[in-house]
Design a protein around this nucleic acid. Structure first.
Length: 1063
RNA sequence: GCUCGAGUGGUGGAAUUGGUAGACACGUUGGACUUAAAAUCCAAUGGCCAUUAUGGCCGUGCGGGUUCAAGUCCCGCCUCGAGUACCA
């Protein structure tokens, strides 16, 4: 919270010569001011640190001189520093956003000082949902909102003094940019994945293979239902069939995908938009529905995405997240024959060694064979079960894991070895989307199978030697010795697995297999504000618009909601058909005139795709596009990509671990395969900056029954209100137990306050209802939940003493004020909670105010000073005065002249001054290389404190010092640099060379410890021998005092470090 | 449940390869300057004990261990945070 402390003068550049102020609740004047207070000053100009003026001047200078423009050719070595580009939301930047940008900016500036040609671009991920939702509500075109938001972002970024090369700005929603997103999509469409060469290849090559030999020998990533065909079959197929088959191989393909469909809203919902099976907004029913959607065959790259992680310097948690997400598991596919039919069921298992323990099989309810194999007697039960599970969303299914449900199909499979009948069940613990959607259930070795068997009374044969399975399954494969398993008896897990796979292969009923959890990525969204697909449909088959006619620009629509027939918003466009003869977008009406849709006799006008691409489309190639952002002929030139190659340092949040950071690696690998980029990992090193957390404020509002439902704007219950409740409200006031336990982490003071408030209400009630007996009860927690609850309020409306700005609240949230029975005059109980900083949590802190009050350099230093970059940390402005006064001290060092005017001395600096400077150079250099920016800030403070104490004003010290500080506080550094007489930007200066000779010491303050505990220190020459040190220490009187006459057992002397005496 | 990360003063956090725990800052207290305040400067500030000085004891989530020496290494726990979840 802002306090009255610190440099809070409205005009920093002028210093008060006379001033008086009115304090809060001034005892004499009796004036109560609001928090910011009113101050009246008379000012005179002086030479103090005028950060506002300085920062504005240099920001202007950098912009006018394009100081940070990077060239694609240079004698210097290149270095590419990248930030994750922001989504320009309407809320603007909060103090959490710049954290990573400040770190990367420091690094980029440092690398420039170190003589690198640095590429440090910035842009906007400007397609996205918030702008679209705003458009739905207001009718405002998302492009306009987006443009406005970008302006705000740009202003906010500029005021922080980042060294971005803005000439390379990209925006994903700019047709000039998304032209190339569409272009990559076409390349993906025209490619397939060849497992033999282990890379993506042209679809034309695949066609050539099909023409020659069919697909039997082709090892490719393809749909599971791809039929096997010969060359003769291929030539006999119709064009449409061929296209259908090719679609099963393309890296981007159309497929029926199961989605959460909300008919009332006419859109697909993400899992977290559904609560208890109904939509979060509106409470409409949601069903699981198959929809034809574009998908990306990212699974083809599963292994390479895994292997690539070893080649890049990314944080371990992030690599772990991707590894888990890809979820490689090694096992076997086993094919079970179904008795009395010709059908087979393949299952995937990681424990083929336990096959003799398989006492049943379980299929996912959605499994396609379920209908075929279910017997007449079981039809009803199975049908009912499937219907019941279909109603439950995936999320619900996951939520009640403990509930065991299933149904018997009546069918039996044949065990591959024993040939015994294995009953086939269905159960929703088996997921349709993983493996084959079917499992062989081995209850003795898998807890889920065990629970299922117990629940349905299925036998649980034990196939492990000497293990008790009467209570639970035994899943420790390392401890397994197989028994009751024919040829596997006595073998351990490894041997048995090998053997059983060999036997299965002999039978032709299985093989070793590696399975991945990773699923193909759905690439369609039923949204307006995204990249249109460069796709039109002829006879239901997708056709690509040829590359030279890109971009296919997003059409205008009347409204941004789905159409009445449930089509995506683009279905509202009147001009959204493709004239394949003239290669342009034309009116939809012309499609109807083309006669038979798709027929050659028509006019060649076809419907365009109505879905748009997801958010991660544009962010999957932006880092490469920055290298050559204005190229209209190609996504980037060969020279540019070969010069910059890859990102050397990428800074961004870990929340993108399994989204953007995985998809973009996939795109890069694909682009590598088709020869567009020289490396298949685009970011050599990645750092995750920790989140800056916000402190949310809650008001614990008491919500007694009689406080509800005021019809007018009254904030206080009347006698009538209270009496109207008397019939069912017997006077029991439910005192929240929570006041007294720690659920809401209330302080004693808050508890007392809330408790007092309750008492007051009871008194009020009793005054009005004297016949009622009122008693407090602690028993009705759920009543409390309903009656007293924390209500979020904007943090800016609560001061540091937990006082509410009541007028502010009234304006801020009308409903909040009106709906609740609240006490008058600040008798609120305010609670606080640290959580993610977010507009929806009303806990954002805007950097603008801090910039205004302390300046960008202070904010930059402070954000770094908060703690290690990678660590999550709550925002708290309390300490910012520290870094701000550091900057003032720094400024003073260079202003030793009369009236604090600029003055530095040409005189030779002292040895101490050299030492202070070179210590700092060394430490800061190490810190930046290690991304330990917080410790650099304290190093600067130490240095400036030392130089101030030495009264050092030597140019020879202060000039290099400005350079060392400039990556962190670039504005003040530029100003000092120019005061030192330089005409060019400090960013062109070389980082000072560290010279160790200034740090050479002749003696050392040795810590003398006894049994490892330091007792005193002794100053001894560093060139003293071990023996002499020992002698000197032993001769010291204080050593003898410590020993008290005992002779030491041992004396450890580590020259230059420590002396330890063991007594 | 699984995976990863973290536990150090009133607070944020320092502590290279094991070698003076608490750097640097915030806050607090006292002082200087001032009619008064702000700003600035100085001093103290892990806890407990002692105080005439030199001091003493305990301390990095808990319990063990290795070592001359452990915040740091090893073993076993506890707590918190993040991610992920019926993945066969």
């Amino acid at each position: 919270m802002n306090t009255m402390k610190g440099n809070s003068f409205p005009f920093s550049s002028i210093k008060p010569i006379f001033a008086w102020s009115v304090q809060y609740d001034h005892p004499e004047i009796g004036v109560k001011n609001d928090r910011l207070g009113d101050r009246f000053f008379l000012y005179k100009n002086d030479m103090s640190y005028k950060f506002r003026e300085i920062e504005a001047r240099w920001q202007k200078f950098w912009a006018e001189n394009q100081t940070f423009k990077a060239e694609n050719t240079s004698d210097k070595e290149k270095f590419y520093v990248l930030d994750m580009f922001p989504y320009p939301s309407g809320a603007g930047l909060h103090v959490g956003h710049p954290l990573g940008y400040i770190a990367s900016d420091i690094y980029a500036r440092y690398k420039r000082h170190k003589g690198f040609n640095v590429l440090h671009p910035q842009g906007y991920d400007s397609f996205g949902l918030p702008a679209e939702q705003y458009a739905i509500q207001t009718g405002q075109h998302p492009a306009i909102t987006t443009e406005e938001n970008i302006k705000t972002y740009r202003r906010q970024l500029d005021q922080l003094g980042f060294s971005f090369d803005w000439s390379r700005e990209v925006r994903t929603s700019d047709p000039k940019y998304y032209k190339w997103t569409q272009w990559v999509f076409i390349q993906l469409f025209n490619s397939w994945y060849n497992y033999t060469s282990d890379k993506a290849e042209a679809i034309a090559d695949l066609i050539a293979i099909f023409e020659k030999q069919g697909n039997a020998e082709v090892q490719a990533a393809c749909d599971e239902d791809t039929p096997i065909f010969t060359a003769a079959d291929w030539s006999a197929y119709t064009e449409k069939t061929r296209q259908e088959i090719l679609l099963k191989y393309r890296l981007t393909y159309l497929a029926d995908t199961e989605v959460n469909w909300c008919p009332a809203l006419g859109t697909v919902l993400a899992n977290d938009e559904i609560v208890n099976g109904v939509s979060e907004r509106g409470g409409h029913p949601v069903i699981r529905k198959k929809m034809t959607q574009w998908s990306m065959r990212i699974t083809a790259y599963a292994q390479r995405l895994l292997d690539g992680l070893d080649k890049i310097d990314w944080p371990q948690p992030l690599r772990d997240a991707q590894t888990n997400w890809i979820g490689r598991s090694v096992g076997a596919e086993v094919i079970f024959k179904i008795k009395e039919t010709s059908e087979t069921i393949p299952v995937f298992t990681t424990r083929p060694d336990t096959i003799f323990g398989a006492s049943f099989m379980t299929l996912a309810p959605e499994h396609e064979l379920v209908e075929k194999i279910t017997t007449e007697e079981q039809k009803e039960e199975v049908g009912a079960y499937i219907e019941a599970t279909a109603k439950r969303s995936e999320r619900d299914r996951m939520a009640d894991v403990n509930q065991i449900t299933g149904a018997f199909t009546g069918a039996y499979a044949e065990h591959p070895f024993t040939k015994e009948a294995v009953p086939i069940w269905i159960g929703d613990y088996v997921l349709a989307g993983y493996g084959t959607g079917a499992v062989m259930s081995v209850p003795c070795g898998d807890q889920r199978d065990y629970d299922f068997a117990k629940h349905f009374n299925i036998p649980i044969p034990n196939i492990f030697e000497g293990v008790d399975i009467s209570k639970e399954a035994f899943a420790d494969k390392e401890q397994t010795v197989i028994a009751n398993s024919d040829f596997l008896n006595g073998l351990n897990y490894k041997e048995a697995t090998q053997k059983v796979i060999a036997e299965l292969e002999k039978l032709g009923q299985g093989k070793g297999k590696i399975n991945y959890r990773l699923r193909d990525a759905v690439f369609s969204r039923q949204r307006y504000w995204g990249e249109p697909f460069p796709v039109y449909y002829v006879d239901g088959m997708p056709q690509m618009i040829s590359e030279e006619h890109l971009p296919l620009v997003l059409p205008e629509v009347e409204k941004y909601l789905p159409t009445e027939t449930g089509e995506p918003p683009l279905g509202n466009a009147t001009h959204w058909a493709w004239d394949s003869v003239n290669n342009k977008v034309v009116s939809n009406e012309l499609v109807a005139l083309s006669g038979v849709e798709g027929s050659d006799k028509g006019n060649g006008i076809y419907p365009l795709e109505l879905n748009t691409m997801p958010g991660w489309a544009g962010s999957s190639q932006y880092f490469n596009r920055y290298m050559d952002p204005h190229n209209e002929e190609a996504i980037f030139s060969e020279e540019a990509i070969n010069y910059w190659r890859q990102v050397d340092l990428y800074i961004g949040g870990i929340e993108h671990a399994t989204g953007h950071l995985l998809y973009s690696r996939f795109w890069q690998k694909f682009m590598f395969d088709i020869g567009l980029v020289p490396v298949d990992e685009y970011a050599k090193k990645l750092i995750n900056q920790g989140m800056i957390l916000g402190t949310s404020a809650f008001v614990y509002s008491l919500y007694l029954p009689f406080g509800l439902n005021f019809k007018d704007n009254r904030s206080k219950a009347t006698r009538e209100d209270l009496e109207s409740y008397s019939s069912f409200f017997d006077g029991t006031v439910f005192i929240p137990k929570s006041i007294y336990d720690d659920r809401y982490d209330l302080s004693n003071d808050q508890k007392a306050k809330l408790s007092h408030f309750v008492d007051e209400l009871i008194n009020e009630y009793q005054r009005l209802n004297p016949n009622h007996i009122v008693h407090k009860t602690f028993d009705f927690l759920d009543q409390f939940e309903r009656n007293v609850h924390p209500v979020r309020v904007d943090v800016s409306l609560v001061n540091s003493s937990d006082e509410l700005n009541i007028d502010g609240i009234k304006n801020w949230h009308k409903d909040f004020w009106q709906a609740k029975f609240m006490p008058e005059n600040n008798k609120y109980v305010v609670g606080r909670e640290i959580e993610k900083m977010s507009k929806s949590k009303y806990n954002v802190v805007n950097p603008d105010a801090i910039c205004k009050e302390y300046g960008a350099d202070s904010l930059r230093l402070y954000e770094m000073f908060l703690g290690p970059l990678e660590q999550a940390k709550p925002w708290n402005t309390a300490g910012i005065t520290g870094v701000h006064s550091f900057l003032k001290k720094l400024w003073k060092l260079y202003h030793s002249g009369p009236d604090a005017s600029f003055e530095v001395s040409e005189a030779k600096p002292s040895a101490e001054a050299y030492k202070s400077l070179h210590k700092t150079i060394k430490k800061v250099e190490e810190d930046i290389e290690n991304f330990s920016f917080n410790t650099s800030v304290s190093t600067f403070m130490i240095c400036v404190n030392e130089l101030s104490a030495q009264k050092c004003n030597a140019k020879e010290i202060l000039e290099p010092l400005a350079i060392v500080i400039s990556p962190y506080a670039p504005h003040v550094a530029e100003e000092l640099w120019s005061l030192l007489g330089h005409k060019t930007s400090i960013s062109t200066a070389s980082f000072p060379e560290f010279n160790s000779q200034f740090l050479v010491e002749s003696s050392k303050e040795y810590p003398i410890s006894f049994n490892g505990k330091m007792r005193f220190t002794m100053e001894l020459p560093l060139d003293m021998s071990k023996e002499d040190i020992e002698a000197a220490v032993m001769a010291n009187q204080r050593t003898q005092e410590q020993l008290q006459g005992r002779s030491p057992k041992k004396v450890i002397v580590v020259p230059g470090k420590i002396v330890n005496i063991v007594g």
